[in-house]
């Protein structure tokens, strides 16, 4: 990793909750709870955690797509646009729309529902690109889109078929090619490989890496599969109950995890050539609407102390790249 990379996306104590009104009682789901992140240019940042820990909500918030009942409660979200930091939560709807696809794009999980099933892939491309590029340049853009499709090893007739004629892996790759077609600086992937077969998953990951290398942009990728993270991510943030509890370069996360939750995640993974007994994380994840006091991991933590039950630990900077929020580290 080269020194001093530019920060491309920064959040400052970001809080985004779902506020629900259920038969007169208010229910608040704390899905993104005080997240401070700095994501650099030219890197793949992985976010890992169990289902229901707020990963997808965090991505939606980073994508600046906050739709009720989700609300931005507190904190700031900055993008670096033309070497200037912009607080994007204050932008108008039209300005936000322009940023999508051109500056930041989104790769969803289920590629079946991305494309309109009754028009050809070309039609979807026209919709997406047409809403961002003037008529004059459209031919030019299409030429680039076609080139990109060929570069990525997809067959050139892929634009002229209907979505159902493509296999799941192919459709996912076309979705990624579409997300990359306007050279965005940031691409956000929400479990982009989860529903795929292993060999196909490997092909899709390969393609994501190729795109990142070519565009030298940033990919923020959420998945619960630590194996995928180990393969693609430069840095990993471990998310638990709406908070980033540990963040470090990939090698450090796998070799020296400091948070007990990260340790459980890594140690629960089976490996070839090693049949020693593996345990999963005890208990189940907490409900985001009814969080335990203090550190949210304390009911499942084997090293729990009194202070864990009362107070959330601050994030400690262990070294330049390694951050962790745990009382065990704080006191050591």
């Amino acid at each position: 990793m080269s020194e001093e990379k530019q920060v491309v996306l920064r959040t400052d104590h970001l809080k985004s909750f779902y506020v629900l009104d259920m038969q007169g009682t208010r229910k608040i789901v704390k899905a993104v709870n005080d997240v401070t992140l700095e994501i650099y240019e030219d890197e793949i940042y992985g976010i890992a955690g169990e289902s229901g820990c707020g990963k997808t909500t965090l991505l939606k918030t980073l994508f600046n797509e906050i739709v009720p009942p989700q609300r931005l409660i507190d904190g700031k979200l900055y993008y670096r646009i033309n070497s200037e930091e912009v607080d994007v939560t204050t932008l108008s709807a039209e300005e936000k729309r322009r940023l999508r696809m051109e500056y930041i794009s989104y790769i969803p999980q289920g590629s079946m529902s991305v494309f309109n099933p009754v028009i050809k892939i070309k039609g979807t491309y026209e919709d997406f690109i047409g809403s961002h590029v003037d008529g004059k340049n459209r031919e030019e853009i299409f030429r680039i889109a076609r080139e990109r499709i060929l570069e990525l090893g997809l067959p050139k007739n892929v634009l002229d078929v209907y979505p159902h004629q493509l296999s799941g892996g192919m459709r996912q790759r076309v979705t990624i090619a579409l997300a990359a077609s306007l050279d965005p600086r940031i691409m956000i992937g929400d479990e982009p490989t989860t529903a795929l077969d292993v060999v196909v998953q490997r092909g899709v990951i390969q393609m994501l890496k190729d795109i990142q290398k070519k565009l030298k942009n940033t990919i923020i990728m959420v998945t619960h599969d630590m194996g995928v993270h180990a393969n693609v991510a430069d840095r990993i943030g471990i998310m638990y109950a709406g908070k980033i509890v540990e963040e470090a370069p990939t090698e450090t996360i796998f070799e020296e995890p400091r948070h007990p939750y990260t340790q459980f995640l890594i140690n629960s993974l089976p490996k070839f050539g090693d049949k020693s007994t593996r345990e999963s994380v005890p208990g189940s994840p907490p409900s985001l609407a009814d969080l335990p006091t203090g550190c949210p991991f304390h009911p499942r933590c084997p090293h729990v102390k009194d202070i864990c039950r009362q107070q959330m630990p601050e994030t400690t900077q262990l070294d330049k790249n390694h951050k962790v929020a745990c009382w065990l580290v704080e006191e050591a």
Partner: peptide, 20 residues
């Protein structure tokens, strides 16, 4: 077997695959 992503950053894939 080689396509299972291993939870070890030292074992990243180096070669490429041909898809079906």
């Amino acid at each position: 077997r080689d396509s299972i992503p291993q939870a070890d950053p030292k074992l990243r894939w180096s070669d490429t695959v041909t898809l079906a």
